[in-house]
Structures are given as structure tokens and as C-alpha cells.
Design a protein around this nucleic acid. Sequence first.
DNA 1: AGCACGCCGACT
DNA 2: GTCGGCGTGCTC
Length: 880
Amino acid sequence: VLVDCPGAQGLFTYTVPLELTITPGDILSVPFGHQQVGAIAIRAVAALPQGLEAHQVKPVAAVISPGVFSPHYWQLLEAVADYYQTPLMQVIRTALPPGLLARSQRRVRLTPTAPDAAHPPPDLSPTVQRVLSQLQRSPSGDYTWQYLNQQVTGASRALRPLIQRGWVESYLALPQPPRPQRRQAVTVVAADPAGEDLSPRQREVLRVLQRRGGDWWLQDALQTCRTTSATLRTLAKKGYVEICGREKLRQPDQPDLAPDRPKTLTDHQQAALTALNQLAGGEAALLHGVTGSGKTEVYLQAIAPRLAQGQSALVLVPEIGLTPQLTDRFRQRFGDRVCVYHSALSEGERYDAWRQMLDGIPRVVIGTRSAIFAPLPHLGMIILDEEHDPSFKQDQPAPCYHARTVAQWRSHLDQCPLILGSATPSLESWVAVEGKECGSQEPEIQNFSSGDASRRRSQSEGLTKFKIQNLEVGSQESGVRSQEPVQNSKLKIQNSKLPLSPSPHLPISPSPHLPPSPPLHYLPLPERIHARPLPPISVVDMRQELQAGNKSIFSRSLRSALETMANDGGQGILFIHRRGHSSFVSCRACGHVMMCPDCDVSLSQHQPYAHSAPVLRCHYCGYSQNQPSHCPACQSPYLKHFGSGTQRVEQAIQQEFPQLRSLRFDSDTTRTKGSHRALLTRFAAGEADVLVGTQMLTKGIDLPQVTVVGIVAADGLLYMADYRASERAFQILTQVAGRAGRGDQPGRVILQTYTPEHPVIGAVQRQSVADFIATELEQRRDLTYPPWGRLVLLRITSPNPDLVARTAQDFAATLAPQLSADWQILGPAPAPIPRVARRYRWHLMLKGAIAAPMPDLTALAPQCPPSVSLTVDIDPLHLG
DNA sequence: AGCACGCCGACT
DNA sequence: GTCGGCGTGCTC
């Protein structure tokens, strides 16, 4: 068994209780030390491993979910673990729905014999007293061990006398993995509802039930018929209906949609579709379609034949909550074969969707990044829409994987085609297009050979993380602690003698061999559907506006565009890249800037409602406070806000265009479930004239009535200290501009900036992706930044500022002699934002040649002093 | 990770 | 002599 416990390296042996059947690949719950943890069954062994006594072996506690890992799927997880230098178990955890690998909780509760709170026994030490009164504070007298230790220092020791006297008991709360939800269901079985033996009321109920399909959840039936369960039970007794428990799939509410049929394709769409249909398994294509060119229709028609052949399709989108329109279109085309999977679902909904995928019925799964691990048995196609979007890269907990990279491996392992779609392709994909002049420079996003892998392993001499595949090869590591490799290599010998009948163990590859990523077939969609023109983009120099005496945040041309739009009954979108009211608040008298107490970040001003008191919020840790009336440094009353965000823009509209009704679309107004869809529906229904929003506006929104797009200030995007700032600015601006003129009315875009000469602005205005990419590639080549080189970022954090700095320097010193000549160390240096949520952050960057094998950094994490944490980010996207 | 154990300084 | 803090090691 592989246990879900960091630091527990290797495999552990358990007995199988008689009442359980366990197959390799099952997800288990096992006792481990003083707790119960999640585990994966790897293989059955006939005899105890050497050095292990029978009394040491415990039985498996439960099977959480039966066999879910196919050989290919397992190889995919191993590849992710290996490339992103993350323990396999952690990769498994990201691939599974949350809660499946739950661990037990140590809890403590008062027993009935415990003394009354009013009469505490006097012969107890102060800490014991405190623990007792803490327990008595809650009505149940029940706390987790951990919480009690937080509240009362030294609680764990103080509990001992209490437990001895029998006043307190300590118990293990078993993990509660999600389970299928069962509900009573009513089915009409009698064809004729006019039976003689029915009362009038029973007859009526039966008729209502039958009229609408005859298949109901008991709850709904009772409500609709305004009846009681007694009536239905009588109907059941008389044989007219059947009542039985059935699993009810948990699903977010979805609107009823009219089905639609495939649309006629333009010539370009048709050409792309033909090419897609001819893709062999493991081949990949870049579908480069300008905004509004109908990529979605191509996806739909490419998927349809795969479904018909009994295969499933996987569609990855940047953020699903943001794209109700896309999921609706898929539902209209494929009905309930569409399955949505993303992190905004509740635990139960995710679990149900995940189990549905396992059943092998052909489906279309639409999901975010983590859906690349959807357990679909017969995968026929993978589509990554908005392939360039940075949210496909995970940067918080390891593995810091890029869904596009993982998709390439998966497409190869499952032998299915991969489609990358975008209006503004990433440089990585652009360079990988076949026939482009990059030759051997082509970034092989994944290209580790077995040679690399074994070299890496030998480099780190025993400190390397334990890898299952090592067992198969035998144990070359001398340093791996305890007897694991020995006993396990013995197991291996046992297993290898077995005939290759039904695989007795989880198929584990000796080392994840993955071929270089294939070249991309280039499929352009250079025109919008119905030959609609791309909207012209006018760039407005805001410096000249100021000179002309215009102090408004709206230029004269944006102002007039909005006025004509209002007269013509069109709708508009205003884009600003920051939410909230303003970017920071500072004192006019002394220059003091309001800062977050826990981060090195200025606080943003928010004004939830038009006249409410302003609130200051930290966008990094969520800290918030009311805006003080006087400067905390000098007591001056002149605290002023600078810069503008969505709230400020909305306010300005209300002041300057009272006739225009506006809606705000940012993460403040879309926080609750379903609010995206609600806002978009209201806007589409004409409840507002202007939609004011952030980046969110760029993602998969198709609003045909929009004729005007105003970019209130492009500058905030252009000047970020990140080598990808230009690329991201170009992508966002182009995508926002592309929201205009998607209906019958032509659109126009007004781009306001203080630096119209910036090359990104020019490229956006010319709407020329190729030009932009060519210049950008040139610049990156000079510095050997990706896609011409590769990066690894070590993020080191701790609440102790000196310790982080020292650790970062130590790591640099350890790595320097280990790295090959084609890698160099940049830093260490404090991170661009040196402190977030009271943790100090340092960065250590490794830059290597494109063909250079990745250095093995897995040995560093165990060297971290306590309180210091290290994240290894392979191919980082943002360096902030 | 989480928990137990054992060492060591501080305080009654 | 005891309490409580902290580093170390183990989990089939």
C-alpha cells in the first residue's frame, strides 16, 4: 500500500480482512501510527516481507473507492510526479476529488463522570484546570486535539491526568469520505391510472405523477401533488407505483435549454474540422482563430463523431465559473452527456461527477485545470480552449503543473488527438508549430529521457524521494532509510516470477518514458463568422486629454462613443484591470500610504455600495479594515485615493452619464455561486447598458449586442515586473477588444493609455498576433527566456525573515556545484512582494538551456529548517 | 502530517 | 522536584 503521509516513504504491508476484497488500484483507509490515513493498494503479496513480524502488520480498515487507476492513468500520474518533482502521493491527491483521501482526527470529549463546571476539583494543576474549563465551555465538551492544543498550551500533557481519572476520553474520529447520496424515488408502474380500487385523491395524484414522465424523487412528488407519503405508500401497496431508494446525483442547478443542431461551417471552419478529424492519436493541433471566428462550433463538431464511436472528450477551459455560455452550448448540443468538473462544485457534486466519469459511458467533460486528470476510460479527444491562459498553470500547492503539458502526455498515453485553441496563442505553442523556423530549438515541453531520470536519481545519493519504479529495477540507493528497498525488491522478484495473467499489481512503469511533444499542426481561422469585421481599435493618448483640460477618466472619443451607443440602443463594455475602487490610499500631507499589516502591499479602497463607508482591503491576504478618517502617521484628515478600479469607473459613469445603467463584473460581484450567469443574463436581457469589469470579461463571453469596448487604462497591464508582462498584456487587450462587434452591428474599441508608443499597444491596434510574437520571441531569445530556455523557481518562505534569507543562500550554495554548465543560478533575492500573510518570501531562480536536463531539487525540501517551506516551480509562469 | 518521546532550562 | 518548551524519530 502507498500511504498518504508525507515522510512515509515506500510501501507498507497490511492484511486483508475477510470481509474485504481488495484489488490493486483501490483507494483505502488504513491505520497508520496513531491515526488512520488514505492509501492506494499497489499489489498483493503472498508472504510477509523480510524483517516484518506478523504482529506488526495491521488490517486494512476500509475500501473507499474500488479500482480507479488504469495503467495509462497511473503512468500519467507518475510522469507528473517525476517532471514536477513532487511526491507521487501528492499528485494522486490533486487528481482525485477532495475528501477521498481523508485522514482521521484525534478528538477529545468529556465523559458523563466529569465533575461539574461549577465545582472544579481543587487538586488539579493550573493547566489541567484550564483544559477542563475549555472543554466545559462547549455544550458537547468535544474538541479536536489540535484545537485544544492551540487554545491551551501544553494541553496534550494536561489531558493525561484527566484521562486517567476517566473524566475525559480521547478518541479517533474516523475519516468520512464522500458517499453517494441516496433518496427515495417513485416510479409509476401501472399503465392504467383509472383503477377501480383508487380513491379520487389517489387517482388525481397518480395522474399528475404520470403526466410528467412518471419518474420522481419522493420529495418532489410530495411537493408537486401536495400530498403525504401515506398516500404514495398506499398507491405502492396497490401496485400502481414503486418506491425505492436510488442514488441521486448531486448537480448544480442548470437552466432548461433548447437543443440546437450543428451550424453550417465557414470554409475556414470546415478546413479546420477536416484536419482535426484526420489527426491520429497522440497528434496535436493549434487552432488559431481570431475572436469571434467560431472555435466553439468547430470543437462541437469535432467531438460529435468521437462520441458516436463510444469515446469521451475532455474540454479544458480557464475558469469554468466564468463560462456558463460555453457549458450551455455544449449542453444544448450533447444534452446530459455533458459533465462539468471544477473546484467551485461542492465536495459531493465533485465526487458524483467523478464517479460518473468512471462508468465508461461516453461523455463530454468540461472542466478547469484539474480536469486533465478526469478518469475517463475511453478518451477520444482533448481540447484546451484559450490555450494561452495562465490559469492552466498551478502555482500554489505542488505539483505546479501546466495542464497543457500534462495534456500532451495524456494525449500520447491515451493515443487521442489534442487541440489547443486560442485567438492569442502562447509563445510556447507558436514555436512548436510544425514548419516554423525553429528546428531543433523547438521547446520540447516534455522531454526527459530515461537517461536524465537515472542521472538525476544517482546525483542525489539516497536523499532522493522514494520512487516506486525503483523497486522494479532493484534498489540502487544505499541511503534510503530502513529496510524498505530490500523487502520490496524481494517482492519484485516474487512478482516477476508470476505469469503475466491478470496483472497482480498496479502496472508501474520502470520510469516514465515520454517522447518529445509532437509538432503542432497549424489550423488558422483568420476570419470572423458571417465575415463580420474585427472592430477597429482607436488608441487615445490620455496625456493629450489632460493637456486639453479633460480630467475625466473618459477621453473625449470614449465619451462620444458611449453617447452614440446609448442613442443607437447598443451596449458597451468598459475594461479596467483592477477591481475595487482605487489602487491605493495615501496622505496628502505626509505621503503615508495605507499598507496591509501582514503583507508588503498597499491596501486597495473598496466601496461596496454607492454611499457606504470606504473599506480598505488587501488583495493578497484578504485583510480588511475601515478607512480611517485621519492619517495614522500625521493625523491629517486628507487621505486621498489614487488610481482607479472597477468601482471607481462605475461611479464615474453614474456621475458623467446618468442615463446609462451599469453592471459591475469582477470577483467582488461574482463571488457567490451562479452570480456569473446571473450577471451575464441580466446584461444580455438589456437590464444595463454598460458592463464594467476586469480580466473576467476576457474569458469566453459572447455578447452580440456589444458595439463599444472601452479600455479605460491599459497602462496598469503594461508595467509589471515580469518577463511575461507584454505577452499577457497583449493577450488580455486583444481578447477584450474582441468582445466588440460580435453581432450584426459593427463594433469599435477605444484604448486609452498614457504610453501609446509602447510596442504592445501598437501590436494590439494592428491586431497582428504574428508581428507581436515575432518581436517578443526576438527579445526572449536574447535573454534565453522561455520558450528559448527553461526556468525553475524556488519559492522559499518563513515567518522568520533571517531564516528565509539564510536558507535561500544555503540552497544557492548547495546547488551551485551540483548544476551542470547549462544551468545558472539567479539570486537568491527577496520576492517582488517580500512579505505576504506574515510570511517572508525569497526567490531562487534557475535558468537553463532548452535542452538541458532538469536538475533534481527533491533533496532540498528535507533540508528546510522547521517553519521554512519550499515550493519548487518547474516552468513557472509568473515570477511574483 | 501528526503524534509520542526524551532532553533540558526555569521556576516553586 | 516538577512543569512546559522544543528537537527527533516513527508510522506496516
